[in-house]
Each structure stands twice: as structure tokens, then as C-alpha cells.
Design a protein around this nucleic acid. Structure first.
Lengths: 185, 185
DNA sequence: GCCGGAACCGGAGCAGCTGTTCCGCTGTGA
DNA sequence: TCACAGCGGAACAGCTGCTCCGGTTCCGGC
């Protein structure tokens, strides 16, 4: 692949990515391509030249955020306090959900979009396994609680995405606390 | 308005309602009108003659289910055991969510569809207030838990609607237990 | 039994949204 | 300067809710 991309094309690609980040975070992954193009100040054809299909754009935008999740997860795995590691993960997950309408779907969703992040999702699931196992070994989990309970809680938080923005932040915060109270001993 | 509706029209109206019940419960409230008509074995024009707008059909189908919710709520208010009343309400809510993809949205949602059930939603909210107040008075709730926490839990259960049907039943069950564990003392 | 017009029906069609492509023009950079 | 990578916006295809209209069916009166 020759590097002979023109300078204006490179700058347009960046503008598309910036506009897509804003749009998807504010309006969710279903935001129309025309809206992304409009916000970037370019035509739809230009958008499609850089990202041949909608899924390509979504995947590219999500990739960097997913990596940020990975960083947080690895930090949690290094935390010597098992409860702080697990509860921090849940709270940060909820916080990301409030800030970014589009992200968590990639880690928990089942659509074709999130299929592109198979490896990351497996890593995420594996790390969650470890965090829960450690917390249980430390005796801070209520009897009978397992990984799938925690995952159900995370899924629920992620599913609240569609609520009106005014209330969703409060509801998500309450739900995260509720989930933590539900799994703690 | 004269009662001179013809017999075939009456029967068609019933077929539309039956088809709509099936379709909405299986595919959610967003199911296309054409699909309802197809399942009923009639044309779309006939469907629109009986229900002039999409919202009319949805409202009519939901009305009977919403009433069933009211019945359950009133039964819970009569239960002398505060915890059984509240936890039973949460569990029945989750169970309805599993069986009917479309219902709970009407009680908790914020779209224009659920606006038609303002009175029922207020009654539902009021009953929930009473149930939570009684449970707190009985000392079965964890300190600091209030109605909005319970409502956040119910909202979360209702939001899981979009999950693939295969897994949603299990996830909803786990989440309901998690919510109950989170609010109990 | 059957007649006639009001009531009713089906499906093609309209308007508006989406993702995606085509093509003539523009502006970059060697 | 000028070839050609790159651009914008109209247009296409396919979905949606909803409507129009010519043909069909019911049913009260004879």
C-alpha cells in the first residue's frame, strides 16, 4: 500500500474521526452517516472513501476506547485489594457508560459490530473472571455470587443507554451502587 | 356513533389485535405494521382503518397488559408481609419482562407511547412508594435504600429487552436476584 | 331469493428515513 | 503547468409509517 496519500486527505480523515467520536458518544452508535459527515464539514462520499462501510467507521472509533478499557482492566488486576479492584471496575464501567453512549456495547453486545472485538471481549471476560475469583477468595462476596451475576449487572448498566440523557446519569449511578451492594457480603 | 359495524369488520379487528399481541410480544414494539398485517392475513389498509395510527394499535394492545400489572400491584399492597410484597413485585416484573418483550416499557418508558398510560404509571409509582415505605418501616431494607433505587433496578430489568432471547431470560433472572440482594438489609 | 348501495377490503403508491455509490468538477503538489 | 488523487452532492436501493382508490362483500328491504 503506497504512502502517497495527499495531505488534505489525511486531514479530512482526522476530521471524520473527530466528528464520529463526538457524534457516536452523544447520539449512540446508530447515528446516521450523514450526520457524521455534516459535523465534519465534508460530503458523505469523502467519508465513505476513508471508511468504506459504516462498520469500518464504528470499529475504528471504538478501537481506541476499547484499548482504554483494557488499560483499566490491567490496572485493576494489579490492585492488591480484591474488593477495590472489582468495585472500581464496576464503577468505572458505569462512569464510562455515562460519558460515552457507544462504548460498552462493543464489550458486551452481540451484534456484528462487537464481533470485531472478539479478542478484546475475551480478554475482558477473562480479567473479570480473575477479579471475581480473587474477591470470592478474599471473602468479600456474598455466598452464591459468581461471574455471571457480575456480568448481568454490567449488562444492565450498559443497557440503560437508551434512557433520556437527563435522568440516565443518576439512574446508572444508583444501579451501580445497587449491583455492588448486591454482590458484597 | 352508530353500532352498525359489519360482522366481517368486527372479526378482522379481532384478528388484527391477536396478530399484534403475538408480534409485539415476540419482536418488540418496533415491529413493522406490515408484519402485523401479514400475520393477521389482511392488508395494511384494513389495519389502519381499525387503528388510524401505529400508536393507537400499540396502546390498545398494551392496555390489557397494563391492567394486569395493576391487579398484581393491588394484590401486593394487600400482602401483610412487606418484604414478600416488594420482592414479589420485582420478581413478577422480571418474569413479565421475560414473557413479553413489549410491556414494561409502557410503565417505565419515556416515549410518546407510554405517555398514553400516564394515570397507570402514576398509580404504579405510587404503589411502589407505599411498598418501599412499608418495607423500610419493617426494617427489611438496607440503610439508605429508597424508592429511586428500586426504580433504577426495575428500569435496568426492563432495559435488558434488547438482549438475544436465548440469554435474556437467565440474565434477567440473575439481575432480579441481584437487585433484591442489593436492597435487602 | 335476490337486489342495490353503503361499508369494507387489498395492495400499489407516497413521503421520508437510512446506507451506499456514481460522476463531473476541484485543487494539490511534483 | 497539469495529471490525477480527492471532493461534494445528487441519486439509488431498501426500509419505514401511512393513504388512495377501484373492486368486493355484506345485509336490510322487498
Amino acid at each position: 500500500m503506497p504512502q502517497k496519500q495527499r495531505a488534505d486527505a489525511r486531514s479530512n480523515r482526522e476530521r471524520v474521526l473527530a466528528a464520529a467520536r463526538e457524534t457516536f458518544a452523544a447520539a449512540g452508535l446508530e447515528a446516521p452517516m450523514r450526520e457524521v459527515a455534516r459535523r465534519a464539514g465534508i460530503g458523505v462520499a469523502t467519508l465513505y472513501r476513508h471508511f468504506p462501510t459504516r462498520a469500518d467507521l464504528v470499529t475504528t472509533v471504538l478501537a481506541e476506547r476499547v484499548e482504554a478499557c483494557g488499560v483499566q482492566m490491567r490496572r485493576a488486576l494489579d490492585d492488591p485489594d480484591p474488593w477495590r479492584a472489582l468495585s472500581g471496575t464496576v464503577l468505572e464501567f458505569a462512569d464510562r457508560q455515562v460519558r460515552d453512549q457507544a462504548l460498552n456495547e462493543a464489550l458486551l453486545g452481540s451484534g456484528e459490530v462487537s464481533a470485531a472485538f472478539g479478542a478484546e471481549r475475551r480478554e475482558h471476560a477473562q480479567a473479570l473472571n480473575v477479579l471475581v475469583a480473587r474477591a470470592r477468595a478474599a471473602g468479600v462476596l456474598r455466598a452464591g455470587v459468581d461471574v455471571d451475576d457480575v456480568r448481568a449487572g454490567l449488562l444492565a448498566i450498559a443497557s440503560l443507554r437508551r434512557l433520556p440523557a437527563r435522568t440516565s446519569a443518576q439512574v446508572i449511578g444508583r444501579l451501580a451502587d445497587l449491583v455492588l451492594a448486591g454482590i458484597r457480603v
